[in-house]
Design a protein around this nucleic acid. Structure first.
Lengths: 344, 344
DNA sequence: GAATAATGAGAAAGCGTTTTCTCAGAGCGT
DNA sequence: ACGCTCTGAGAAAACGCTTTCTCATTATTC
């Protein structure tokens, strides 16, 4: 038997009693079923407002087999990128009366699977944001997580996938620096397990192939301020005049570290970020970066999810992953390579 | 009758059938009830794993009268402060096996009440983050939202409340500027409806009373980058040498705008922020601000909520609001008032 | 005016659990 | 050997809702 709450919430039965009708009729009225006589409907509505009746969503969910909630699994909620996706998703879902449940895996990829499964059971669908789990695990898990939408990840299992073309974006940034006369570049890489870092590396391979004359060094890194800030020495040691940071956060950390050393940006060194987070317009100097329409990505994630939930035939949605192209956002952290450093 | 899913999820009944026991026994085993014979328990567990049985949380919620979920209502998810609270709350709640449901009111205070009520019914409790609704409305709503925790807001209705002492913080920042020799200050205010802006104004009133010699001007503002960026003219026109921005975002916008005009910070003008968001350490110059332990605030919100849910006697928790004191974080965006501007 | 169709509302089953109630059977003492 | 307690498991109610099924009432038609 269920637990009896200390003060029982008022339910459909109370309204039915007060209006002198059956549970069924109350339910019908509450759901706008027009097979109910107008007089009775009015009486029920009156009773409902008088008792301040609010249907219990849990009972509703059980009967209807849906929760009007979707889950989102993110590796780290402190990352502005994931925050923006969450926001876009949440806003878009709210438009259609859906709520968002959060599951933060704290970058612990081993917990991700359990977390995802648990979240999925509470929701009508799941958005997996750049999952850190292996391809094999993802594919194995996929069936039990449907309907599911992937962000910055693909899988052979059938699931819509939204990708940002980080490879193309980083290439454009590199080309941008080359166009400014830089010949020695450095890439401040991101986290090992990050799929988006892999895409950047792939893009840079292509870039290298197309520009054998350019010296491009790979430096170890990460994804936050501290990493950028602590990389000043490595960057200077590399002799690069143009630095491609993994993302805007790293770039900002680097900018700050360079400033402390009295090294001028862009006069001495040019720096680029990635993502175009809102802050990038307001750094000093303003940050050249590759803009990712991240909020739109969250929105799109919801739209794909909605199609799945509503069972829209899959041929209405694109088969392969939807790819978002970053847009080069030239600002003042990049400039012509300085004459003296250009030489060596 | 409930909706029959296209492919029925496997339920407790399937496990019971396979193990040759009753629903009840399966439930007992799954919940670690030791009144079940070890042999039978093992058989049930085997059946469960073989069928990959996962209890349906909705059914569970209905029977148990709890959802293991709490809701958070925020005025704007794009605000780093609310993001940080959300993060702290989510992490802390996850520790105790609770999930967080998001309700973003998009600063529309009229929707807030409905949103809150709806979220509450889906959850075991509600965290209201700086609600924009009126005091009267909040108090009227409070009973139906219990258990509830307030952040940056109080109410006469009984509910734990976590407050940041913005008044004290802004006073310290102002004192800091005065200590550096500034005599003409300006406050770039926040949104009208924001309670935290009201607290800052109150603090500044006190400050004025204690420093009749200081010229403190109030400038209209807001809470984001753009506002700070667009306020450069107003700030310059005010003749102030020290500017108290509503928060770090506004300060960063201002910093950027001043930089574009070639006005040096802190040599020509000193600027302070508020909140100490992670970015504040990495602006150029680094931002003097009042640090708010915001993630801890989210954490505390969960702990208060947990006490309410577990029905811990209220005398265990403090009666009045818990107040968090901001800590002055002196960095390089503030410096001695310049001789030439100090005069006029 | 009687047979038929249309309308509207109640009874009850079902959603998937938990938990109380109940009772069969085992263990034990006398 | 009989009655007692105790253990363990099944039957069934409860959680709060939706919806099908069913049937009573009224409207329609020849």
């Amino acid at each position: 038997m269920g637990r009896r709450a200390t003060t029982r919430r008022i339910g459909i039965a109370d309204v039915a009693l007060k209006a002198g009708v059956s549970h069924a009729t109350v339910s019908r009225v509450m759901n706008g079923n027009f097979t109910v006589d107008a007089t009775i409907a009015a009486r029920v509505r009156a009773a409902a407002t008088e008792l301040n009746y609010q249907p219990n969503p849990v009972g509703r969910s059980l009967a209807l087999g849906k929760t009007d909630t979707i889950g989102i699994v993110v590796p780290d909620l402190s990352n502005p990128t994931f925050q923006a996706i969450l926001r876009g998703l949440s806003m878009a879902a709210a438009q259609d009366g859906y709520r968002v449940l959060i599951a933060d895996s704290s970058e612990v990829s081993s917990e991700e699977a359990i977390l995802a499964g648990e979240a999925r059971r509470r929701c009508d669908g799941l958005v997996l944001c750049a999952p850190r789990m292996s391809d094999a695990e993802l594919e194995e898990l996929a069936p039990s997580l449907q309907p599911m939408v992937l962000i910055n990840r693909t899988t052979d299992a059938h699931a819509p996938s939204l990708m940002v073309d980080y490879g193309q974006g980083i290439q454009e940034l590199a080309e941008h620096l080359v166009g400014l006369g830089h010949t020695r570049l450095a890439f401040l890489a991101g986290p090992e397990r990050s799929a988006s870092n892999g895409l950047r590396l792939l893009g840079l391979e292509k870039f290298k192939a197309g520009h054998p004359e350019i010296d491009l060094q790979m430096l170890e890194g990460g994804s936050n301020f501290e990493v950028g800030h602590q990389s000043v020495d490595a960057v200077l040691a590399s002799g690069a005049t143009g630095v491609l940071a993994f993302n805007d956060l790293v770039a900002m950390g680097l900018l700050s570290g360079l400033h402390e050393r009295g090294i001028r940006v862009p006069e001495d060194i040019s720096v680029t970020g990635f993502d175009d987070i809102p802050f990038a317009r307001y750094t000093t100097p303003t940050l050249t970066t590759a803009a990712v329409p991240i909020t739109e990505l969250g929105q799109q994630a919801w739209h794909r999810m909605r199609d799945l939930i509503r069972n829209v035939p899959s041929d209405a949605a694109p088969e392969g992953p939807t790819v978002f192209q970053p847009r080069l956002e030239g600002r003042s952290s990049t400039g012509p390579a300085s004459a003296e450093r250009r030489g060596g």
